[in-house]
Amino acid sequence: QTIHNGDQTYHYDNPEEAIKVAQKLAKIYNLTVTVKGNTVQVH
Protein backbone atom coordinates (compact mmCIF):
# COMPACT_ATOMS: atom_id res chain seq x y z
CA GLN A 1 0.00 0.00 0.00
CA THR A 2 1.39 3.40 -0.95
CA ILE A 3 0.33 6.80 0.38
CA HIS A 4 1.08 9.88 -1.70
CA ASN A 5 0.92 13.08 0.37
CA GLY A 6 1.92 15.92 -1.91
CA ASP A 7 5.59 15.29 -2.65
CA GLN A 8 5.92 12.66 0.06
CA THR A 9 5.34 8.94 -0.47
CA TYR A 10 4.84 6.41 2.31
CA HIS A 11 4.83 2.61 1.94
CA TYR A 12 2.84 0.28 4.21
CA ASP A 13 2.55 -3.50 4.20
CA ASN A 14 -0.93 -3.29 5.71
CA PRO A 15 -3.61 -1.55 3.58
CA GLU A 16 -5.79 -0.81 6.62
CA GLU A 17 -2.86 0.88 8.37
CA ALA A 18 -2.14 2.94 5.26
CA ILE A 19 -5.74 4.14 5.10
CA LYS A 20 -5.73 5.01 8.82
CA VAL A 21 -2.56 7.06 8.41
CA ALA A 22 -3.98 8.78 5.33
CA GLN A 23 -7.15 9.69 7.23
CA LYS A 24 -5.08 11.13 10.11
CA LEU A 25 -3.06 13.23 7.68
CA ALA A 26 -6.25 14.38 5.99
CA LYS A 27 -7.75 15.51 9.31
CA ILE A 28 -4.58 17.34 10.37
CA TYR A 29 -4.11 19.17 7.08
CA ASN A 30 -7.80 19.34 6.07
CA LEU A 31 -7.19 17.29 2.93
CA THR A 32 -9.04 14.66 0.91
CA VAL A 33 -8.19 10.95 0.92
CA THR A 34 -8.54 9.07 -2.37
CA VAL A 35 -8.05 5.30 -2.54
CA LYS A 36 -7.13 3.91 -5.96
CA GLY A 37 -6.27 0.22 -5.92
CA ASN A 38 -3.05 -0.11 -3.92
CA THR A 39 -2.49 3.64 -3.75
CA VAL A 40 -3.89 6.03 -1.15
CA GLN A 41 -3.61 9.68 -2.16
CA VAL A 42 -3.89 12.56 0.29
CA HIS A 43 -4.50 15.88 -1.44
Rank of each mutant, 00 (worst) to 15 (best):
I3R: 05
N38D: 03
H11E: 09
A22I: 04
L25H: 01
K24N: 10
N38V: 05
D7F: 15
Q41W: 13
K27F: 14
E17W: 07
H4G: 09
T39H: 04
L25D: 02
N38C: 14
H43T: 06
N14K: 03
V40H: 00
V21W: 14
N38K: 04
Y12K: 00
V42W: 02
V40T: 00
T39G: 02
V21M: 14
H4V: 11
I19E: 10
T2P: 12
V40Q: 00
V40A: 01
G6Y: 13
V35H: 02
K27G: 13
T34H: 04
H43V: 06
V40K: 00
P15I: 08
Y29I: 04
K24R: 13
H11W: 11
Y29G: 06
I3F: 09
V33Y: 00
V40D: 00
Q41I: 15
P15K: 06
I19L: 13
I19A: 09
N5K: 12
T9F: 15
A22V: 03
V21D: 04
D7G: 13
H4Y: 12
N38Q: 04
E16G: 05
K24V: 14
V42H: 01
K27H: 14
H4T: 09
A26D: 12
N5I: 13
I19K: 12
T34F: 06
P15H: 13
L25F: 04
E16A: 09
N14T: 15
H4Q: 10
Y10F: 11
I28V: 09
Q41E: 08
T39F: 05
K36R: 10
K24Y: 15
N14D: 09
E17N: 04
Q8M: 13
D13H: 08
A22L: 04
D13N: 12
K27N: 14
N30V: 03
H11Y: 14
A22T: 01
Q1L: 11
K24P: 00
T32F: 07
V40L: 06
A18K: 00
I28G: 03
Q41G: 02
N5F: 13
L25E: 02
A18R: 00
Q41S: 11
N30K: 09
N30S: 06
V21Y: 08
G37D: 06
D13T: 08
Y12I: 02
H43W: 07
E17K: 07
D13C: 06
K20M: 08
V40Y: 00
L31P: 00
N14P: 03
L31I: 09
N38S: 09
T34N: 03
T9D: 04
P15A: 11
H43P: 01
H11R: 08
T2V: 10
Q23E: 14
E17A: 08
Q8C: 15
T39A: 05
A18I: 02
I3Y: 09
T34P: 00
V33K: 00
D7N: 10
G6I: 10
V35G: 00
V21A: 15
D13Q: 09
K20Q: 08
P15Y: 09
A18N: 01
L25S: 00
Q1R: 02
T39K: 05
N38E: 02
E17D: 08
D13V: 06
E16K: 07
E17T: 14
V33W: 00
G6S: 10
V33L: 03
T9S: 06
Q8V: 15
Q1E: 11
N38I: 03
K27V: 12
Q41L: 14
K20A: 12
Q1I: 13
H43A: 04
I3C: 15
I19V: 08
Y29R: 06
Y10A: 02
P15E: 13
T2F: 12
E17R: 06
D13M: 08
Y12A: 04
A22G: 06
P15T: 07
Q23P: 00
T34I: 09
H11P: 02
Y10K: 02
H43I: 08
T9M: 11
H43G: 04
N38T: 07
K20Y: 09
H4E: 10
H43M: 06
L25C: 09
N38F: 03
Q8Y: 14
Y29H: 11
I3S: 11
G37V: 02
Y29K: 10
D13W: 05
T39D: 05
V33A: 02
Y10P: 01
L25M: 04
Y12Q: 01
Q1S: 13
T32Q: 09
K27M: 15
N5C: 14
K24Q: 14
Q1W: 04
Y10Q: 02
V35L: 05
T9A: 05
Y12M: 05
V33R: 00
Y29F: 10
I28Y: 15
P15D: 06
